[in-house]
């Protein structure tokens, strides 16, 4: 599969936080052929281990979350419309009129209804609807809706993956399936490289609701080194230039308190050496990614963060550049391949 095909295949699989089963199965299947061992831990993280060729070398954990934002049914109304809550929270700006899939007894197509302008007061037409004014219409009368839908059923956006000009693609769940695609790309590249370190590619669960998969996954794996791969603010109208990163200008390599400076230095060195374009980010405190959880696992893990610029995050049309995904995968593969068995000594603080 090409990067585009793999990303599309992942995007179309539902995987709201806590309900990652379908997307996890796809990842598990894809990685089985690329890594020697693939397992799922107790919270559902998919963990692929590609052993290095020098036993006793450090363990490198690469993590990207496979869960996506979504909604959850909270009530079936007497007229068959569904009330819902956000997982983790609703962006009211992007919901009205959008298509969704309600994952009930079977998948049901639906649309998010909102009050039409003609029944609103003039000043209310200028406001966003409130969550309590929204509902989902699955076209079923209440009796049928109750047969097929229960409180607690997850809901995903219904969105095709669309190819824009300039090598960009738009779709749902690219946050952080783009990161999972990076890990996939990395595993594919590693097949042609010698590497001393054991590489753990981990598709984590429940990142969007509190980095929970990374907390337990890192504890279980006990890596010596960890790199989170996530998406980051792409250049979007309304987002200040200094807070955003340009699509197709390469992955973002972060530095700051969440990042071990030597890991950062060496990621940059590999990128420069291979002529992989990259962008730098300075993050003063937490990065809001799995890297936050990984860094403080057990007695502390040297951690880094590589990100794919992404426009329109947390909407049904998240947009990334395919080249950035490929570049990040290549960067990580070569970073792994160049780690020596004694690399941990270089990480010791003087």
């Amino acid at each position: 599969m090409t990067v585009r095909e793999f990303l599309e295949w992942l995007s179309l699989a539902p995987g709201v936080s806590g309900f990652e089963g379908p997307v996890a199965a796809r990842i598990e299947g894809a990685w089985a052929g690329l890594a020697g061992e693939v397992r799922r831990d107790r919270l559902g993280n998919v963990i692929a281990l590609k052993r290095g060729d020098r036993p006793g070398s450090p363990k490198l954990m690469l993590a990207a979350h496979m869960d996506e934002i979504g909604l959850m049914v909270t009530r079936v109304e007497p007229d068959g419309f569904l009330r819902f809550a956000g997982v983790p929270e609703v962006d009211l700006r992007t919901l009205p009129g959008k298509e969704v899939v309600v994952h009930g007894r079977r998948d049901l197509r639906g649309v998010v209804g909102h009050p039409p302008p003609h029944i609103l007061s003039p000043e209310d037409t200028k406001k966003l609807p409130k969550l309590e004014d929204l509902f989902i219409d699955v076209g079923l009368a209440a009796v049928r809706a109750r047969e097929l839908v229960a409180v607690g059923d997850p809901i995903t956006f219904r969105a095709e993956v669309r190819e824009l000009k300039g090598g960009l693609v738009a779709g749902k769940g690219f946050d952080d399936r783009a990161g999972v695609a990076v890990l996939h790309q990395c595993l594919e590249e590693l097949a042609g490289l010698h590497h001393a370190v054991d590489v753990y590619a981990v598709a984590t669960v429940q990142e969007e609701v509190g980095l929970r998969g990374a907390v337990v996954g890192t504890y279980g794996i006990q890596p010596d080194l960890a790199i989170a791969v996530d998406v980051h603010l792409g250049d979007t109208p309304g987002v200040p230039e200094h807070k955003s990163f340009t699509l197709d200008k390469g992955p973002v390599i972060t530095m700051g308190a969440n990042i071990h400076p030597v890991l950062h230095r060496d990621l940059v060195a590999v990128a420069r050496d291979l002529n992989i374009p990259f962008q730098l980010e300075a993050a003063p405190a937490g990065t809001g990614t799995d890297a936050v959880a990984m860094q403080v696992s057990r007695s502390g893990i040297p951690t880094a963060l590589v990100s794919i610029p992404c426009r329109y995050m947390h909407s049904p049309v998240e947009t990334v550049a395919l080249a950035d995904v490929a570049r990040a995968g290549r960067l990580l593969a070569h970073f792994a391949a160049r780690r020596t068995p004694g690399y941990l000594e270089e990480l010791a603080w003087s």
Binding site: R93, E163, L164, L233, G288, R311, Y312, T319
Partner: peptide, 20 residues
């Protein structure tokens, strides 16, 4: 294909409800 998008909700001021 074209996309009509907004910046992510992460940057919103949580105290104010966002405008249309």
């Amino acid at each position: 294909p074209g996309i009509i998008g907004l910046g992510p909700p992460h940057l919103l001021d949580r105290k104010e409800s966002p405008a249309v």
